[in-house]
Write a protein that binds this DNA or RNA. Structure first.
Length: 418
RNA sequence: GGGUCGGUGGCAGAGUGGUCAAUUGCAUCAGACUGUAAAUCUGACGCCGCAAGGCUUCGGGGGUUCGACUCCCUCCCGGCCCA
């Protein structure tokens, strides 16, 4: 018995710490109520939290990171935390994200994706804590075992009208767009996850509340248990309300190298500053306020980029990424590490490639037409001198080892074969 | 099963016999400016070609026509209504 006690984590019930998590501004919806959740947290009983993600992409993005950071906060209070891989639900594709097509994935692909994820978030989620590590579960473990009868039994807990209430479905009905029958089963399955893992709290984005509530319903009906749903605010531009997403050009994936991640943050619109500081860094709310009041939002954004890169790549890499940014972007200097590209021999007239061919082979341009356009628009320079319209043939005497710049931040060193 | 409407470039969404490589918006790229790779403004945005121009695209296949994204046939896929 003492041995068992030794492994039991102490639950932290410090109200100040709990409030820090609940009031930071990331969590925006509490079901049934914030008060009841807080009471449960203060009661000192170990709660089981979970968050799920469908393993359809190679990389997680900052939206996931935000949620996982909240999860980690609760883990640090001593609560049990499960990161659920929706390998089974992923086969359906969540209807709340219409772009998420159904992807048939093999077990190997799922495992592969998750091992990438783990690398990406290892600094925000502790999978290796000796006493209370984050647990990983796959929902195929139980969902693939349900038989038709059991599925019917689950389905009988919901009405078609309830499903149709979901605004996503409602919208698609109005737009006369297809809704597939299996999509109705998605909330059902996500709901069953709660039952199978017997969780106390589900954490999700506000767009997932419907699914999470299906789980709440099932927990009530099947286990007579009051499951909490806590929802995080989706990261969106404060001014334009545009969500952070790939299609809006603001998506930031966590597999980026330090310099690229830094740049990706710098290219966020100003309206993303506060949401990102709040959701994706540990900067205190007071300091965020100060940063938001800086005269030049650029400075706040540099700090933001630094903070985020620091989380995923460490302080030193963040410092370097910042230097790289200042050097190449602000001061428009040439970076230290420019990739080299060998110029190809073209024909027997002693000619090497022309600029357009070189740009294509070094991937500075998508096609020769693209290269030509970039030259025409004044976007190409060699050693600081603009390449002017016409066919410039690269020449080993004048161009060897020179640096070609395309756009604001693409550099390639021109290298001639010996 | 019947009727009807529809399937267009990364996405959304116009076009409905030649002027269409296809309006526009988003995304993307380049430039200007700036406070930054923000915002704003300008331009570009199928491939090849220095150019003239050529080539391949509007669900698949076939046909009509001097000429089709546009008309016809057929197949595949979807919405709606009816059964």
């Amino acid at each position: 018995m003492t041995g068992l006690l030794f492994f039991m984590t102490k639950i932290i019930t410090d109200e100040k710490k709990i409030d820090e998590i609940l009031e930071r501004g990331v969590l925006v919806d509490f079901l049934p109520t914030k008060k009841e959740l807080k009471e449960a947290l203060l009661a000192g009983k170990k709660l089981r939290f979970y968050m799920g993600a469908d393993p359809t992409a190679k990389a997680l993005h900052l939206g996931h990171a935000q949620n996982l950071m909240v999860l980690e906060d609760f883990r640090k209070l001593g609560h049990e935390v499960i990161f659920l891989i929706g390998d089974f639900t992923g086969m359906i594709g969540d209807p709340s994200d219409k772009s998420s097509a159904r992807v048939k994935q093999t077990r190997e692909e799922v495992v592969e994706n998750f091992s990438n994820w783990k690398k990406q978030v290892k600094n925000i989620l502790d999978f290796n804590d000796a006493v209370n590590p984050v647990q990983i579960k796959y929902n195929s473990e139980w969902l693939s075992k349900l038989n038709y009868g059991e599925v019917l039994e689950l389905a009988s807990n919901f009405t078609v009208q309830q499903m149709l209430e979901r605004d996503m479905f409602d919208k698609r009905m109005k737009e006369e767009k297809p809704i597939y029958l299996h999509e109705f089963l998605y909330p059902l399955m996500q709901g069953y996850d709660s039952v199978a893992m017997d969780v106390d709290v589900e954490l999700c984005g506000t767009d997932q509340i419907f699914n999470a509530l299906a789980g709440r319903t099932l927990m009530q009906k099947l286990k007579n248990k009051n499951k909490f749903v806590i929802a995080t605010k989706l990261i969106a531009d404060e001014k334009t309300k545009m969500l952070m997403s790939k299609s809006n050009g603001t998506g930031v994936f966590l597999d980026l190298e330090a310099n690229d991640l830094f740049g990706a943050i710098m290219s966020q619109p100003d309206g993303m500053l506060r949401p990102l500081f709040t959701g994706c860094t540990r900067v205190t709310p007071e300091e965020i306020e100060d940063l938001m009041n800086l005269e030049n939002p650029r400075d706040a954004k540099i700090r933001l980029a630094y903070e985020i890169v620091k989380i995923y790549h460490g302080g030193e890499a963040a410092k370097k990424a910042e230097e790289h940014f200042v050097k190449t972007i602000q001061k428009k200097e040439i970076p230290n590490d420019v990739p080299e590209q060998i110029v190809k021999w073209v024909d027997a007239y002693n000619d090497y490639e022309n600029v357009a061919d070189f740009m294509v082979s070094s991937r500075l341009a998508k096609s020769k037409g693209d290269a030509k356009r970039k030259v025409e628009q004044g976007g190409v320079s060699i050693d600081g001198e603009k390449v002017i319209v016409g066919v410039l043939i690269l020449n080993s005497e004048t161009h060897n080892n020179k640096i070609m710049k395309v756009g604001k931040f693409n550099f390639v060193k021109i290298k001639f074969p010996e």
